[in-house]
Nucleic acid binder design. Sequence first.
DNA 1: AAACCAACGGAAAAGCTTTTCCGTTGCAAA
DNA 2: TTTGCAACGGAAAAGCTTTTCCGTTGGTTT
Lengths: 348, 348
Amino acid sequence: MRLVTIHEVARNAGVSIGTVSKVLNNQGQLRAETRLRVRAAAELLGFRPNDLARSLHRKRTFTIGLVSSDRFGRFSIPLLEGIEDALDSARVAVFLCKPTDDPAHERRHVESLLAKRVDGLIVTSRRTDPRPPLDTLGTSVPVIYAYAQTAGAGATCLLADDEGGGYLAGRHLVGLGRTRIAHITGPERFAAVRERRAGLSRALAGAQVPLDPRLASTGPWSEAWGREAVGRLLDAGPPFDAVFCGSDQIARGVADCLRERGLNVPDDVAIVGYDNWEIVAAATRPPLTTIDPCLHELGQAAASRLLAMIDGDHGPAATRHVVRLPCRLLVRASCGGGSSLKTADRAA
Amino acid sequence: MRLVTIHEVARNAGVSIGTVSKVLNNQGQLRAETRLRVRAAAELLGFRPNDLARSLHRKRTFTIGLVSSDRFGRFSIPLLEGIEDALDSARVAVFLCKPTDDPAHERRHVESLLAKRVDGLIVTSRRTDPRPPLDTLGTSVPVIYAYAQTAGAGATCLLADDEGGGYLAGRHLVGLGRTRIAHITGPERFAAVRERRAGLSRALAGAQVPLDPRLASTGPWSEAWGREAVGRLLDAGPPFDAVFCGSDQIARGVADCLRERGLNVPDDVAIVGYDNWEIVAAATRPPLTTIDPCLHELGQAAASRLLAMIDGDHGPAATRHVVRLPCRLLVRASCGGGSSLKTADRAA
DNA sequence: AAACCAACGGAAAAGCTTTTCCGTTGCAAA
DNA sequence: TTTGCAACGGAAAAGCTTTTCCGTTGGTTT
């Protein structure tokens, strides 16, 4: 695969390689006729400048590494697409890399990325709980944590605002007049679980609606858990007219169980899910009103910020930033209620 | 981010840069003591050879491009992971790139990948139907189509064996003694739909079981369609004791509807799904026996083959290869039946 | 003691582009 | 006609590594 070099273009156009370079980069003082001739030669030969040589010289590769400390899953995808979106317009390419949780493996990948002289790194994970800081092996490549965070000092972390999401859900439900609100969510050990609950509490407190602890339960992030938990409440719990679920999967289980028990959603019980996992939320009967963590936007934001850090070179690297991006309430049918709220409603 | 170069290591170790290179690549004739000294200096300074310079010289970047003509979705993920798996051990990194369906956009991406001198390209898409060949802009980079195909002459395409998958499903059902088998699947225009049906027919024909056309219906790839289609059969169709579904989503709809109509799965009706989309198949009540297209393996195979093409340089590039990789029957509970079959059963 | 060989490691080219610095060339001004 | 300037484009270095080809050095062989 012998590729055309700038030398051949130069020879073909009867100029020096420096001139070719100038033409192709719109630099220097050249006659229009010369530019045309060189361009024609380049076109004819199908010349494509070698980015390796170019980057070697410019000390910038227009390349970043995405290290996802977890398997690619439903959270990584919108994130990834957001990142691609933002980078694509800056003509920056992304190296994918999927280390396992094994730190040695991660290290090896970072090593390889650094050898390739990526301009920056984005770290993501499935869980939003703190992870050990990425070891950049003594270099000072800009790093940004997207939908991931670390306790490290100078780290910039972009997260979804789980507390705000919980608040949005709560406010929506009380706004619709619900007063006995159950909360069925994931394992207590997840920070997201605790924060979403805090947001819910804040919303209810603001409306003088009590949060009955007997109506709150934690368990796995699964449909089966949703069915089981709501079944228990129906069997032995106090009455309730709404359920805020920790995930759309849980919400789906809740909806299925309620329907099978003869209850109507949303008339008897309103449901708010979490994640806006389209394929689940839209297929549920009725389709789920849910909290959308806006991961696409989060990905875009992460990428833009990284780009800024790369350009700024010596940005505010020393200070730690944890930024929470707002979630969005996406109204479908599971709460009834106005299409007036739509998606415009954002957390503070 | 001034990085350490081989010169600094050389100075530090009191040798020439050539010697450093030899040490780090285990080449040449050097005293053990020298090797040690150089290694120590490199370690001390945290030297990391610049892959740009290295690749420039070696004419090999250990980098490939993954162009996914479709959004990253549930099919791309296992594929991607398989690819990563195979490439990781060869220490090859992958550039992600997600052109839209716009050919100009795709072209721009390929352009950029070629400028980065990727050693090869993998093309994937969500649908398995033929796509236009990837324009490699006059170069001869090895290209492989994974879970995608093109009519182009010298193309190598790796696909899942849909016909074989349909056959597996059919054989499993007749093996369990089912004789009135319905088929609810996706839109007719998908090649996969037609091929899976052909496989089903072959299996039934082999067992002298008729395929009643009144029991076959096509529609969207959705749960709702599964519910609707099976509902219609219950209302107005001939009796049936099994349903082979075109996707797990459809199968889930079928299972939900049957249960709600008071029928037992698998006692009254057995169900086989398609895709082994874990999160759906395992959450269905009962968990779905399904056809697993083995996309992880397909990804691995695609990557290994690409690697071989890269190494072989002038491989069998001129001939067209379309390879169908076998699917696997994954037994859960929706057909009852033996755990004896398990996953060992593969298409011919 | 002369000749030779093995072991060791240095010098330099190659790989491809960008960019700075200068040298020409042609024309206008004095 | 000479001087000067602007426009144009070439030469060469820089960016970093790998690899080939040689030159030294010290010891062995006869």
